[in-house]
Design a binder for these strands. Structure first.
Lengths: 241, 241
DNA sequence: TAGTGGTCTAGACCACAAA
DNA sequence: TTGTGGTCTAGACCACTAA
């Protein structure tokens, strides 16, 4: 499973392997991971290398290590929505809600200047514009306006995005996976159009997030605007000294 | 400087020492830290131990390591406000604004049930209540309502908190330092009283943060509510895949 | 007592940056 | 070429947990 001749560091290969297993759900939350000596013989690397991989997982909050007991898979937490790129569906699951989606608009548009700038392309570059209403337990919770660089995902509009996650589709059809994203969080008033879709009065407070997502090649590919109903959505995080 | 007989791990002592130096500003942002071999001879520990300390600092974003060049002190970023416990003054500095404060209320009150619960004490326990208007470049930006457990900071109300940071005062007089904090971020409407102080219309959107801060003994000591003007304040952060 | 993760060491080779 | 940080090893002792 681990390739010692690869240019990817061994500890990172171990990390990716374990991380994949955890995210794919091969171990339930709370499950005991193999002990360090077992991982050593399984992957044929030294203890320090194994521990380097576990350190990464622990730093991400994916595992919990307890001296004398073992290493456990952590339960996904609400705080992950502020640290990790999480899909709407995953986010809702963690909150104990059922997610559904309604596509409001799907078009090809030329990039307006301010969006072109965030995506680091020329104004007028062709974008895929996707506007979706996100519901939690059947009630409107958020509106997402995605702007994707068309040249990275031609033909995306032909896909059925009502029932299929955009994230999976980008991965499977175009090989696009996010590596990281930067976002800005604000409180704003609901514009009439948005308010109507979210079924709140115009002017109600919304939690607004603007996010630029970068592909694994570290290229900005998506500019996303999300409007969450202020009365139904909040963010959690933990700060360090 | 490093005590090998201490029960605190060596790497953590090195980490604390370097971290303190960086936070106290002994190195300017962008400054070159001593190279690893130098730290080894300086602290008389092995390279792995030094690197363990540097890994922590790097994970916090306090340093940037570049192969072949060296290790540099990172410039404080706006994103730190979402990862680290940052004072209002520090936050404003990073945004290029001048911070000032007006004390609106300072009292001793019995803990209301919902606050008592967050602080893990009985309702009625005595609290120090401190309401402050925070200004940026002379204009109202936020209102902070702090609730502190009185028994940890008796006599706090006698202090001059107009010109002195609460954080420094708690540290110097009571030995209270925050180790971590949990917070919830929401978008809400400005209530009339808050709106008046912030000089915005009632009902305007505010970014609202509720935070419980834990002392180094891991005891919740402060419950804080902050109301930021939505038009003048936003949060930044970076997400990982 | 046996097994777990936590800490620490000395030493090695590598890739990258700068002079 | 020199010095930097990046990776990796084998081996050791310790503290904690659970049986």
């Amino acid at each position: 499973m681990i390739d010692p001749t690869s240019k990817v560091p061994l500890y990172h290969q171990v990390y990716e392997t374990l991380r994949g297993g955890i995210l794919r759900g091969e171990w339930e939350p709370g499950a005991l991971l193999p002990a360090e000596p077992e991982l050593i013989s399984q992957y044929k690397v030294s203890r320090i290398t194994i521990r380097q991989a576990l350190d990464l997982l622990s730093g991400e909050g994916l595992i919990i290590r307890q001296r004398g007991r073992g290493t456990f898979v952590a339960a996904p937490s609400l705080e992950q929505a502020m640290v990790r790129i999480v899909s709407f569906t995953q986010d809702m699951e963690q909150r104990g809600l059922r997610a559904s989606t309604e596509v409001l608009a799907a078009d090809r548009i030329p990039a307006p200047p301010h969006i072109a700038q965030k995506l680091n392309v020329e104004p007028g570059e062709e974008l895929v514009y996707l506007e979706r209403l996100r519901l939690a337990d059947g009630t409107p919770l958020a509106i997402e306006e995605a702007h994707l660089l068309h040249r990275f995902c031609p033909g995306l509009l032909k896909a059925n995005l009502q029932n299929q996650s955009l994230r999976n589709h980008l991965d499977r059809k175009y090989g696009i996976r996010w590596s990281r994203a930067k976002q800005v969080i604000r409180a704003i008033q609901a514009a009439p159009e948005i308010a109507r879709h979210l079924e709140v009065p115009t002017g109600d407070p919304l939690l607004h997030i603007e996010r630029v997502s970068y592909s694994q090649q570290n290229v900005p590919v998506e500019f996303l605007r999300v409007y969450y109903r202020g009365d139904r959505y909040s963010l959690f995080n933990e700060l360090q000294a």
